[in-house]
């Protein structure tokens, strides 16, 4: 089942990438990132069947980071929205030098 899991993982990851690349809503982009993280988690779990529990430990770390990221990221989105009244990423180009 490991190979199948990796396949599903790859597909989910690709879908997440497509979402990040095509969507303009910051919240949905964010959710796509979460999807990608989950796809990676699936790979970890699949490999942990072959190599032991370390993979599961890493999944715990990934989840923690995802949670932290969600907290900070959503706070940023709130701050942006408060100022611009939008979460459209094409309208936000503060990084332009």
């Amino acid at each position: 089942m490991v190979a199948e899991s990796l396949f599903f993982s790859a597909v989910l990851f690709a879908v997440g990438v497509i979402g990040v690349l095509t969507r303009r809503n910051a919240i949905i982009i964010f959710m796509c990132v979460e999807l990608m993280l989950n796809a990676v988690n699936l790979s970890f779990i699949a490999f942990s069947r072959l190599y032991g529990f370390a993979g599961q430990v890493f999944v715990i770390f990934v989840m923690t980071v995802a949670a932290a990221e969600a907290a900070v990221g959503l706070a940023i989105i709130i701050a942006i929205f408060r100022h611009r009244q939008t979460v459209n990423m094409t309208a936000i180009n503060l990084l332009k030098g």
């Binding site: 089942m1 979460e34 699949a46 942990s48 949670a67 907290a71």
Partner: peptide
Amino acid sequence: ALYILLDAQFIGAIQVLVYAGAIMVVF
């Protein structure tokens, strides 16, 4: 469900709790 099928029952549980339960709710 896949995690549980892959013998990672604990991770499956916290997947539901943390992701589905907490993070998505925040979203």
